[in-house]
Design a protein around this nucleic acid. Structure first.
Lengths: 144, 144
DNA sequence: CCCGGAATATTAGCCAGACTAAGTTAGTTG
DNA sequence: CAACTAACTTAGTCTGGCTAATATTCCGGG
């Protein structure tokens, strides 16, 4: 298959669709949405600026503004200011936000670990070997 | 790593996030949304009923109704009836819908193939081996 | 010093896509 | 045949994405 990129791409495409459905099914009814969870995750290691967050999550600034508004209203994050530049707003986790992040992460990891436990040792080896490759996919596609 | 499912789950989780971002970036500004594309794909081999489509895409019936409304308005699908049961509505591709499906598929496959071409032969082998494993992930998790 | 352009966010208004609740129409069954 | 069930649709709400327009603030050149 490696010598027929198109055929391989078709297989990859099918698998991606499967993974998307998996994620959709598994994230229904969670205490935070997957987007909110992702944003909270970005704040784990300290305050970030709005532009950073937007770029990191591949959304426009206004979208991130709205998401942060909701998280702030929910008490999970707090806005701050950069003393060196009055234009930038910083965002950081509140204690409750950190708790929520960790709780959701535990739940998600446990669910995934459960799925992985259903595999054989060999399958897990194969998958583990492929993870770095998947992480590399599309890394430097500059043209949209 | 295979012996520490939790650690592996964390790695898988990171890779999934990366793939989701990849998909988001690559599907911006396409002629049909990824959802619409997925629904069109379900119709490739003949008419389907609304309930089938909803279940296959892991959404509720009203959601599918709205999506089919839009596709119908765009002229990409047509609604029909089941002669044996007047309650069910069938949905099938129009000629234009089929054309659009194939065009979008070609574009997506080409993009993916391009990403794959950036990998080494060894990396493609590793990835190819992992595809069936990924497809198996979460296959029989009955409890939500 | 200040004026104009660039950078950072927010607001407003739009659309897609998800949900639940409620309504309609058509089969099915006691 | 009356009541229940099944298959959809409609209506209303929410999240999450976009663009355009609007503050604010910073910075550089005259």
């Amino acid at each position: 298959m490696r010598d027929d990129p198109t055929q391989m791409a078709e297989q990859v495409s099918k698998v991606l669709r499967h993974l998307v459905l998996l994620l959709r099914r598994s994230s229904a009814g969670q205490p935070v949405t997957t987007q909110q969870y992702a944003v909270l995750g970005s704040l784990e290691h300290g305050p970030r600026r709005m532009t950073e967050l937007a770029e990191e999550h591949a959304v426009q600034l206004p979208t991130m503004t709205v998401q942060i508004n909701r998280l702030e209203y929910a008490g999970l994050v707090a806005r701050g200011s950069d003393p060196a530049d009055a234009r930038v707003r910083t965002v950081e986790l509140t204690g409750e936000g950190r708790d929520r992040l960790h709780a959701v992460r535990r739940a998600r990891i446990a669910r995934l670990a459960q799925d992985l436990a259903a595999l054989t040792d060999d399958e897990r080896d194969v998958l583990a070997a492929a993870l770095p490759v998947l992480a590399k996919l599309g890394i430097d596609r500059t043209t949209q």
